[in-house]
Design a protein around this nucleic acid. Structure first.
Lengths: 335, 335
DNA sequence: CTGAAAGCGCTAACAG
DNA sequence: CTGTTAGCGCTTTCAG
């Protein structure tokens, strides 16, 4: 790789002149600037990023720690982060916790040595269950900016991007109620996550406010290690009076639709279904799943923007923001 | 952040002694080593990654450029890459070309300034169509190691990890033939990709070898911008004699199953379906899709390993390897 | 307008 | 066994 020093030698001028010329310093004469830039192009000179980072004490790189990249939601958030990062001249280092606290901790540890300027993360399942947060605290203590999205740690003060899970679930359930549904089930494979609990609460409250039904037998909790089809099929067999389903996670909605139809029920006539997901997932069921759209890409973009804002005013003591992204209901064929 | 210099001052010894002590140099006495390490722990000293990179002229970071992170296959490859990278002490910078040549080019350009030690990539759709390859060539000219997987550029010599798409498609089609299927359709939304073409060829050859059917009317090409459900539904309506479907892409298989059943056909009795996908996608259809498993995570792991091998013998002129990962057929309920 | 020199944080050759 | 020094590639102050 060509360096400034080498370039300077070729041009018979000093390295500092070359550097200034490349940066359009007013100290340098126009002819020299021109000469230097031409030579730079010819020799395909590129400023060494690492040297720049060392000098400026900033890497223009963000660490992103995701619980599960196979989850469509996180993939889409990553898409949003990457897009916004590119536009702002940042790179992203991606780490996957795979829901484990140890991996999450290691990733934070490993990258907090000057590798990145800040972090964006969503809390791993294991961490949410154990409520561990020392590793997050440690990042804060090192004064490294941190943005959490979706699954956030309540006892850590930092910038956060979330949706109103309670309200979204409430509204989705109400949506089914308004369609005349009397026995609305909740299916969830995320009931040990913060967002899962909020969605459960929202569902319960909506039923409580508008119907005289006990939700006890209407709630199905699926473990992600189990076969969802079997679990949901058994559930539907056992509760034949169900006429509405609110799926609190990404995938149960389409599974529920496909299964219902294979059991001879028609959707949405016999069973109406709505779930948290987006358009591409909705396509996996016939009829297409109506969804609560979290605008995952938007969450990604906003997370990055919030982080950048924080990076630019690193010393200013500015109150941490929690931004709530509004969800929308995308009505399709299943309701 | 604590530096060696500061640490040295606290201990009243020279920075070089501290550096050597931290690295267990035999030049340093054991008591000193102990003293230094204890101080390092107390002050939470971490070697600055950027300085290390500058010194060693290597970042221990890999650039990964993916065409589409919402595609489950690429997400899973990323999972494999990340896992293997972590085990080998590498970080990954993720860039998403979103199928565009310009973004792919920019990402390569932007990262080839010392940001990464090498690249892993799968070629963007637009690039495969236009057959552009100057930007890949440029990376080679700069002597930056490059591994391509799945969608590879034939006119670029580099390490490659692929599957035998022709054979996989041939075998999958043959699999349906052996089940007694007479009118086997191909559905694909990737016919302008290298792998899509190979799969089409494999399908055609299998039919040609074993049946006296013209495949002309049995091939459905879906544009990814269209509504796949509508397109596939129309196709099935038009060709009611179809009794087998080979889905050459990730998603059409499950859509085809769900649609077939909604049209009153039973799967696999009336229509038998197999597709390129993996277990989690297979779950989106009832009955569950039988799949050709590409072992995407394995592809990711091997890509990274190949790259690391190349990095470790950067000067050695070693012939480029093309590794073919064997696929397997995961028989489920749809065949 | 150009150049010499210091320094970002670290390692390593060399001197003592 | 410990310390001094130079240098990775770059920017920037200061001197000329």
């Amino acid at each position: 790789m060509m360096t400034i020093k080498e370039l300077a030698k070729k041009l018979n001028i000093s390295p500092s002149t070359v550097s200034k010329a490349l940066n359009d310093s007013p100290e340098i004469s126009l002819p020299t600037i021109k000469r230097v830039k031409e030579a730079a192009k010819i020799y395909n000179y590129k400023p060494n990023k690492v040297a720049l980072s060392l000098k400026s004490n900033s890497t223009k790189t963000i660490g992103v720690i995701l619980p599960d990249i196979l989850n469509h939601f996180f993939a889409k958030v990553l898409l949003g982060i990457e897009k916004e990062a590119t536009e702002n001249g940042y790179n992203i280092i991606t780490c996957l916790s795979n829901e484990f606290t140890s991996k999450e901790k290691d990733s934070l540890e490993l990258l907090s040595n000057g590798s990145v300027d800040g972090f964006i993360l969503s809390v791993a399942e294991e961490t949410q269950v154990s409520k561990e947060s020392a590793h997050f605290k440690s990042i804060k203590d090192q004064n490294i900016p941190l943005v959490m999205f979706d699954r956030v740690a309540n006892d850590i003060e930092c910038d956060k991007i979330i949706i109103d899970d309670f309200k979204a679930a409430y509204d989705a359930t109400k949506f089914l109620i308004d369609k005349g549904r009397k026995q609305i089930a909740l299916i969830s494979n995320i009931d040990n996550l913060s967002v899962g609990k909020l969605r459960l609460d929202g569902y319960k409250k909506a039923i409580e406010d508008h119907q005289e039904v006990s939700t006890e037998t209407l709630i199905l909790s699926v473990d992600r290690s189990e076969d969802p089809q079997k679990k949901i099929a058994d559930f539907l067999d056992k509760h034949k009076n169900i006429d509405g389903i609110f799926a609190a996670d990404n995938t149960s909605g389409v599974v529920a639709i496909n299964l219902s139809r294979s059991k001879g029920k028609s959707v949405p006539e016999d069973i109406s279904v709505i779930g948290f997901a987006d358009a591409s997932i909705a396509n996996y069921s016939t009829p297409k799943l109506s969804t609560i759209n979290q605008h995952a890409d938007e969450i990604g973009r906003m997370s990055l923007n919030l982080l950048i804002k924080r990076l630019h005013n690193k010393d200013e003591i500015k109150k941490y923001e929690t931004t709530v992204i509004p969800v929308t209901i995308d009505q399709r064929e299943s309701t």
